[in-house]
Computed example of a mutant assay.
Amino acid sequence: MLNKPVRPALALARPFSNQERDAVYRAINERRDVRDQFLPTPIPDDVLLRLLQAAHSAPSVGFMQPWNFIVVRDAKKREQAWSVFSKANDEAADMFSGERKATYQSLKLEGIRKAPINLIVTCDRSRGGKVVLGRTHNQQMDLYSTVCAVQNLWLAARAEGVGVGWVSIFNESDMRELFQIPNEIKIIAYLCIGYVDELYTEPELAAKGWRQRLELKDLIFEEEWNRPTKT
Protein backbone atom coordinates (compact mmCIF):
# COMPACT_ATOMS: atom_id res chain seq x y z
CA MET A 1 0.00 0.00 0.00
CA LEU A 2 1.43 3.34 -1.04
CA ASN A 3 1.85 6.01 1.59
CA LYS A 4 -0.38 9.00 1.06
CA PRO A 5 1.57 12.19 0.36
CA VAL A 6 1.81 14.36 3.44
CA ARG A 7 1.12 18.03 3.03
CA PRO A 8 4.08 19.96 4.48
CA ALA A 9 3.33 22.00 7.58
CA LEU A 10 3.83 25.70 6.92
CA ALA A 11 3.76 28.69 9.23
CA LEU A 12 3.99 32.42 8.61
CA ALA A 13 7.59 33.57 8.18
CA ARG A 14 7.14 36.78 10.11
CA PRO A 15 10.15 38.97 10.80
CA PHE A 16 11.38 39.03 14.38
CA SER A 17 10.53 42.00 16.54
CA ASN A 18 13.34 44.54 16.93
CA GLN A 19 14.10 43.16 20.39
CA GLU A 20 14.21 39.55 19.16
CA ARG A 21 16.35 40.49 16.18
CA ASP A 22 18.79 42.45 18.34
CA ALA A 23 19.13 39.45 20.68
CA VAL A 24 20.15 37.23 17.76
CA TYR A 25 22.79 39.67 16.55
CA ARG A 26 24.01 40.20 20.11
CA ALA A 27 24.62 36.47 20.51
CA ILE A 28 26.54 36.45 17.21
CA ASN A 29 28.65 39.50 18.06
CA GLU A 30 29.40 38.49 21.66
CA ARG A 31 30.22 34.84 20.97
CA ARG A 32 33.77 34.11 22.07
CA ASP A 33 36.15 31.17 22.05
CA VAL A 34 36.60 30.73 25.81
CA ARG A 35 39.83 29.30 27.18
CA ASP A 36 40.31 30.50 30.77
CA GLN A 37 37.14 32.21 32.05
CA PHE A 38 35.27 29.05 33.03
CA LEU A 39 33.62 28.88 36.45
CA PRO A 40 33.39 25.59 38.40
CA THR A 41 29.59 25.94 38.58
CA PRO A 42 27.95 22.75 37.27
CA ILE A 43 25.72 23.06 34.22
CA PRO A 44 22.22 21.73 35.01
CA ASP A 45 21.04 18.86 32.85
CA ASP A 46 18.14 20.89 31.45
CA VAL A 47 20.50 23.63 30.26
CA LEU A 48 22.84 21.12 28.64
CA LEU A 49 19.87 19.46 26.97
CA ARG A 50 18.75 22.82 25.53
CA LEU A 51 22.22 23.36 24.09
CA LEU A 52 22.25 19.88 22.56
CA GLN A 53 18.75 20.43 21.18
CA ALA A 54 19.95 23.65 19.57
CA ALA A 55 22.79 21.68 17.95
CA HIS A 56 20.38 18.96 16.86
CA SER A 57 18.18 21.63 15.22
CA ALA A 58 20.95 22.57 12.78
CA PRO A 59 20.46 22.18 9.03
CA SER A 60 21.98 19.07 7.46
CA VAL A 61 22.36 17.94 3.89
CA GLY A 62 19.66 15.43 2.94
CA PHE A 63 18.42 15.80 6.54
CA MET A 64 20.97 13.10 7.39
CA GLN A 65 21.70 14.59 10.86
CA PRO A 66 25.18 13.04 10.94
CA TRP A 67 26.17 14.24 14.40
CA ASN A 68 26.66 12.49 17.73
CA PHE A 69 27.65 14.06 21.04
CA ILE A 70 29.96 12.56 23.69
CA VAL A 71 29.49 14.35 27.03
CA VAL A 72 32.64 14.16 29.17
CA ARG A 73 32.39 15.13 32.86
CA ASP A 74 34.88 12.76 34.49
CA ALA A 75 37.94 14.65 35.79
CA LYS A 76 40.32 11.76 35.05
CA LYS A 77 39.09 11.53 31.48
CA ARG A 78 39.48 15.29 31.02
CA GLU A 79 43.02 15.09 32.42
CA GLN A 80 43.83 12.40 29.85
CA ALA A 81 42.34 14.56 27.10
CA TRP A 82 44.50 17.46 28.28
CA SER A 83 47.58 15.24 27.95
CA VAL A 84 46.58 14.52 24.34
CA PHE A 85 46.26 18.28 23.74
CA SER A 86 49.53 19.07 25.53
CA LYS A 87 51.51 16.66 23.37
CA ALA A 88 50.11 18.18 20.17
CA ASN A 89 50.52 21.72 21.51
CA ASP A 90 54.25 21.18 21.99
CA GLU A 91 54.43 19.94 18.40
CA ALA A 92 52.50 23.00 17.22
CA ALA A 93 54.77 25.41 19.08
CA ASP A 94 57.76 24.05 17.19
CA MET A 95 56.07 25.04 13.91
CA PHE A 96 56.63 28.70 14.82
CA SER A 97 59.90 30.47 15.46
CA GLY A 98 61.30 33.48 17.24
CA GLU A 99 58.89 36.01 18.68
CA ARG A 100 55.91 34.26 17.10
CA LYS A 101 56.79 31.06 18.95
CA ALA A 102 57.13 32.90 22.25
CA THR A 103 53.75 34.55 21.74
CA TYR A 104 52.20 31.20 20.89
CA GLN A 105 53.57 29.60 24.04
CA SER A 106 52.17 32.46 26.13
CA LEU A 107 48.61 31.84 24.91
CA LYS A 108 46.18 29.61 26.77
CA LEU A 109 44.51 27.61 24.05
CA GLU A 110 42.15 25.29 25.94
CA GLY A 111 40.01 24.91 29.04
CA ILE A 112 39.84 21.12 29.11
CA ARG A 113 40.52 20.69 32.83
CA LYS A 114 38.83 23.90 33.96
CA ALA A 115 35.51 23.57 32.14
CA PRO A 116 33.08 21.26 33.99
CA ILE A 117 31.91 19.68 30.73
CA ASN A 118 33.81 18.64 27.64
CA LEU A 119 31.81 17.74 24.55
CA ILE A 120 33.00 15.82 21.51
CA VAL A 121 30.95 16.40 18.37
CA THR A 122 31.35 13.72 15.72
CA CYS A 123 30.13 13.08 12.19
CA ASP A 124 28.86 9.68 11.05
CA ARG A 125 29.51 9.88 7.32
CA SER A 126 27.51 6.72 6.60
CA ARG A 127 24.27 8.02 8.06
CA GLY A 128 21.65 8.32 5.35
CA GLY A 129 23.16 5.59 3.16
CA LYS A 130 25.66 5.60 0.31
CA VAL A 131 23.80 8.20 -1.75
CA VAL A 132 22.58 11.22 0.20
CA LEU A 133 20.37 13.90 -1.29
CA GLY A 134 22.48 17.04 -1.70
CA ARG A 135 25.79 15.26 -1.15
CA THR A 136 25.90 13.61 -4.56
CA HIS A 137 28.47 16.07 -5.93
CA ASN A 138 30.05 17.47 -2.76
CA GLN A 139 31.02 14.72 -0.36
CA GLN A 140 32.06 17.22 2.32
CA MET A 141 28.54 18.51 2.97
CA ASP A 142 27.98 16.21 5.94
CA LEU A 143 31.08 17.69 7.60
CA TYR A 144 29.81 21.21 6.97
CA SER A 145 26.42 20.21 8.37
CA THR A 146 28.04 19.08 11.62
CA VAL A 147 29.90 22.38 11.90
CA CYS A 148 26.51 24.11 11.66
CA ALA A 149 25.44 22.08 14.70
CA VAL A 150 28.49 23.34 16.59
CA GLN A 151 27.67 26.94 15.72
CA ASN A 152 24.06 26.50 16.81
CA LEU A 153 25.21 25.20 20.18
CA TRP A 154 27.72 28.03 20.54
CA LEU A 155 25.13 30.77 19.96
CA ALA A 156 22.60 29.11 22.25
CA ALA A 157 25.31 28.85 24.91
CA ARG A 158 25.95 32.59 24.72
CA ALA A 159 22.25 33.23 25.36
CA GLU A 160 22.44 30.93 28.41
CA GLY A 161 25.52 32.66 29.87
CA VAL A 162 27.58 29.58 29.05
CA GLY A 163 31.03 29.80 27.49
CA VAL A 164 32.35 27.47 24.80
CA GLY A 165 35.91 26.85 23.68
CA TRP A 166 36.85 24.82 20.60
CA VAL A 167 40.01 22.73 21.03
CA SER A 168 41.51 21.81 17.68
CA ILE A 169 45.09 21.04 18.68
CA PHE A 170 45.34 17.27 19.04
CA ASN A 171 46.25 14.21 17.04
CA GLU A 172 42.94 12.67 16.09
CA SER A 173 44.21 9.11 16.50
CA ASP A 174 45.10 9.81 20.14
CA MET A 175 41.71 11.33 20.92
CA ARG A 176 39.95 8.55 19.03
CA GLU A 177 41.73 5.90 21.11
CA LEU A 178 41.02 7.69 24.40
CA PHE A 179 37.28 7.88 23.77
CA GLN A 180 36.91 4.62 21.83
CA ILE A 181 35.58 6.38 18.74
CA PRO A 182 35.32 4.04 15.71
CA ASN A 183 37.63 4.74 12.78
CA GLU A 184 34.72 5.47 10.44
CA ILE A 185 33.43 8.27 12.71
CA LYS A 186 34.99 11.70 12.13
CA ILE A 187 35.81 13.96 15.09
CA ILE A 188 34.60 17.44 14.19
CA ALA A 189 34.96 19.39 17.44
CA TYR A 190 36.27 19.01 20.96
CA LEU A 191 34.43 21.64 23.01
CA CYS A 192 34.97 22.94 26.53
CA ILE A 193 31.71 24.13 28.11
CA GLY A 194 31.04 26.01 31.34
CA TYR A 195 29.47 29.09 32.85
CA VAL A 196 31.41 32.35 32.59
CA ASP A 197 30.99 35.72 34.25
CA GLU A 198 33.40 37.61 32.01
CA LEU A 199 34.14 37.55 28.28
CA TYR A 200 36.62 39.45 26.15
CA THR A 201 35.03 42.40 24.36
CA GLU A 202 36.80 41.26 21.18
CA PRO A 203 38.24 37.89 20.12
CA GLU A 204 41.02 36.91 22.50
CA LEU A 205 43.60 36.44 19.75
CA ALA A 206 42.87 39.99 18.58
CA ALA A 207 43.10 41.32 22.14
CA LYS A 208 46.47 39.63 22.60
CA GLY A 209 47.86 40.80 19.27
CA TRP A 210 48.00 37.49 17.41
CA ARG A 211 45.80 38.60 14.52
CA GLN A 212 43.20 41.31 13.86
CA ARG A 213 39.79 41.06 12.25
CA LEU A 214 39.87 41.66 8.50
CA GLU A 215 37.79 44.42 6.95
CA LEU A 216 34.51 43.03 5.62
CA LYS A 217 34.63 45.29 2.55
CA ASP A 218 37.86 43.61 1.46
CA LEU A 219 36.20 40.17 1.54
CA ILE A 220 33.15 40.88 -0.60
CA PHE A 221 33.31 40.38 -4.37
CA GLU A 222 30.55 41.06 -6.85
CA GLU A 223 29.48 38.78 -9.71
CA GLU A 224 32.87 37.04 -9.95
CA TRP A 225 36.08 36.36 -8.03
CA ASN A 226 38.19 39.36 -7.11
CA ARG A 227 35.80 41.98 -8.50
CA PRO A 228 35.36 44.50 -5.66
CA THR A 229 31.83 45.14 -4.48
CA LYS A 230 30.17 48.50 -5.07
CA THR A 231 28.31 48.20 -1.75
Rank of each mutant, 00 (worst) to 15 (best):
V34A: 07
R35N: 13
F63H: 08
G62M: 02
P40R: 11
W67L: 02
L51H: 04
P42L: 10
Q37K: 02
P44I: 15
S57R: 05
P40Y: 12
S57E: 03
W67V: 01
G62H: 05
Q65W: 06
L52P: 01
R32M: 12
D36F: 01
L39R: 07
F63L: 09
Q53C: 08
F38M: 00
V61N: 05
A58Q: 00
S60Q: 01
V61Y: 06
S57M: 08
Q65N: 11
P42D: 10
G62Q: 07
R31S: 15
P44M: 15
L52N: 05
P66E: 00
H56C: 12
V61E: 05
L51G: 04
D46T: 11
R35T: 14
P42S: 14
A55L: 04
L39Q: 07
L52R: 01
L39M: 09
P59D: 08
D33A: 10
R31T: 13
M64A: 09
R31G: 13
W67G: 05
A58E: 03
Q53I: 06
L51W: 00
P59A: 10
I43R: 13
G62W: 01
L48V: 07
M64W: 00
V61P: 03
P42I: 13
Q65F: 13
M64E: 03
F63C: 11
D45E: 15
L48G: 03
D36P: 02
P44N: 14
V47W: 01
T41E: 11
P44Y: 14
S57I: 01
D33R: 09
V61C: 06
N68M: 02
S60T: 02
A54E: 14
G62L: 03
F38I: 07
M64L: 07
Q53L: 06
A58N: 02
P42M: 12
D36I: 04
A58R: 00
V47T: 02
S60G: 07
V61L: 07
F63N: 12
Q65V: 09
L48S: 08
M64D: 06
P59E: 06
R31M: 11
P59M: 14
Q65P: 09
A55S: 04
P59Q: 14
P59L: 10
R50D: 13
N68D: 04
F38P: 05
W67D: 06
V34D: 04
H56T: 14
A54D: 15
L48Q: 11
P40K: 11
S57K: 09
N68S: 06
F38W: 01
G62C: 07
W67C: 05
R50C: 12
L49K: 12
F38A: 04
F63E: 11
D45S: 15
A54Q: 14
F38E: 03
F63K: 11
S60N: 05
F63T: 10
V61D: 02
P44R: 11
Q53H: 08
L51N: 03
F38C: 06
D33L: 12
